Computed example of a mutant assay.
Amino acid sequence: MKKLLVVVAVALMTSSAFAAKYGSAGCGLGSMIFEGDQTWWKQVLAATTNGTGVQTIGITLGTSNCDSPAPLKVGQAEAYVEANKVALANDIARGNGETIVGLSKVYGCTNAAQFGQALKSNYSTIFTSANSTSSEITHNINGVAATTCNTQI
């Protein structure tokens, strides 16, 4: 029975129906195996498949039909600021640069140039002192991102 299920799963995963939305079972491997089929019993099987732990992995990594509705993941912005603090301060002062492009992706901004200019205009409110922590800087950037990128933090 397990061999049959594996063969069916592989056959369904290689089908060209990957563009359909998942059903009430949610995202995960089950949504890929039973994609496009909304019958109740197949959704139960999809939910059971998702319950094996692969749904958690899919949600965490954004795979298996599990796309995060918000581009910003918890702690991602602060980690980015911490890792790039000095370069980010320099790029924000100029209003452009690699770290602003990266930061715009973290926040889901579609226009990195506009975001960079908004950050530049708010430099003194983002970096309130020479000893600003990454948490403080991120908090201040969140306000700029909320108005410029329409990102809710």
Rank of each mutant, 00 (worst) to 15 (best):
A112Y: 10
D91R: 03
K85D: 08
E78F: 08
I92P: 05
Q76Y: 09
G75N: 13
N84W: 07
N122L: 04
V81E: 01
D91V: 03
A77G: 11
V106L: 08
Y107H: 08
L119V: 06
E98M: 12
N111E: 13
N84A: 10
N84S: 09
V106S: 02
F127G: 03
A112E: 12
N122A: 15
N84F: 09
I92T: 04
I100R: 02
N96M: 05
G95T: 01
K120P: 00
L103I: 09
A112C: 11
G97L: 06
V101P: 02
Q117D: 06
Y123T: 01
A113D: 14
G75I: 11
N122M: 08
A83F: 03
V81I: 15
A79T: 14
A79K: 12
N90M: 12
A113P: 00
A77I: 07
V101G: 05
A83T: 10
V81S: 00
V86T: 15
S104V: 07
T99V: 06
F115Q: 01
N111C: 08
Y123F: 15
E82M: 12
Y80F: 15
T125Y: 03
I92E: 00
K120W: 06
A113N: 13
A87V: 03
K105P: 06
L103G: 00
T110K: 15
F127W: 14
F115L: 10
A118D: 10
A113M: 13
S129H: 08
A89K: 14
E98I: 14
A118L: 10
Q76W: 06
A77E: 07
S129F: 10
I92M: 00
Q76N: 14
N122P: 06
S124P: 00
V101N: 13
T99Y: 07
A118M: 09
K120I: 02
F115E: 01
V106E: 00
A89W: 01
G97V: 06
E82V: 12
Y123D: 03
F115K: 02
A118W: 11
K105I: 03
V81N: 00
G102H: 05
F127I: 12
R94Q: 14
T125H: 07
A79I: 06
E78S: 09
Y80M: 06
K120G: 02
N111A: 11
N111M: 12
F127D: 03
A89L: 09
A113S: 14
V101I: 14
I100A: 08
A112M: 09
T128V: 15
G116S: 06
N96A: 12
C109N: 03
G102Y: 01
G97P: 07
Y107D: 00
A112R: 06
S121L: 09
A79G: 09
A83N: 14
N111I: 03
Y107E: 04
S129W: 11
Q114N: 14
G95D: 00
A89E: 12
Y123A: 10
K105Y: 05
A113F: 13
A93T: 08
F115P: 01
V106K: 02
E98Q: 13
C109L: 07
K120D: 05
L88K: 01
V101Q: 12
D91L: 00
G75Y: 03
R94L: 13
F115S: 02
A79P: 00
V106D: 00
K120H: 12
V81W: 02
K85Y: 12
G95Q: 01
Q76T: 11
I126R: 01
N96R: 14
C109Y: 01
